[in-house]
Design a protein around this nucleic acid. Structure first.
Lengths: 112, 112
DNA sequence: GTAAAGGCTCACGTCGGTGTCAAGGTCAAG
DNA sequence: CTTGACCTTGACACCGACGTGAGCCTTTAC
């Protein structure tokens, strides 16, 4: 599969796909003419990447997270570290959410 | 109160305070020598600003939100709009949080 | 054979909140 | 008078996830 097709199937722009590769999130082969050739599972990987980005993780965190999420790994300690990282991130977002809803509540109360 | 003192009291950098002013979030008088002179309530306003920034709002939203939150206003329709904006933002963060905790859950399950 | 469509690699632009440096004005203490 | 602390404006630097365009090559379709 080439980049245009993958882009069409995932809704992710060609530029973004190249960026994911540049960041080490997405691996490709190259065919003889230099075109990127994506494997079958690229579809799934891209969906994972966008899901994680949408969840507020940056590409650095995703780079360390993806190999951990995709299959049984030899490195379990790294996974513990990542799990902790994700939980911290979740807590951060949770706090943000809390503060924001407090603000909204105060505003709403104030408007009466 | 001058900028250094306000910075020390709030923990917000001088640069950031000037930026808030530049963005129309924070009003100052100037004394004869050109120095910024902050009123008493600036302390409160700065805390509101940082709270909102931490909550994930940008300065544009805050600019429209602050005059609405500070006291009784003539413009109630603007406030409705802002309330909707804030609720949308809250929902966005809520969704992010949801997705992230799902990811964390999947990862945790995967690690067993 | 030719044009359109798609691919490639630079490489700069964007937004938002700050850091940081430059070049200078003001003011109190020694 | 000088030093040092504090203030001013202006402007460039940064990160992150891309958008966008230039300039060029390859494949596909007619």
């Amino acid at each position: 599969m080439r980049i245009g097709q993958l882009s069409a199937m995932t809704g992710v722009s060609r530029r973004a796909l190249r960026y994911y590769e540049e960041q080490g999130l997405l691996v490709t082969r190259r065919s003889a003419n230099g075109y990127r050739e994506y494997a079958e599972d690229a579809l799934l990987v891209v969906r994972q990447i966008t899901a994680l980005l949408d969840s507020g993780l940056n590409s650095d965190a995703i780079r360390r997270f993806l190999p951990c999420a995709r299959g049984p790994q030899p490195e379990f300690e790294m996974c513990d570290e990542l799990r902790a990282h994700l939980q911290r991130r979740r807590d951060e977002l949770s706090n943000q959410l809390h503060r924001l809803s407090e603000q909204v509540g105060r505003l709403a109360a104030h408007l009466e």
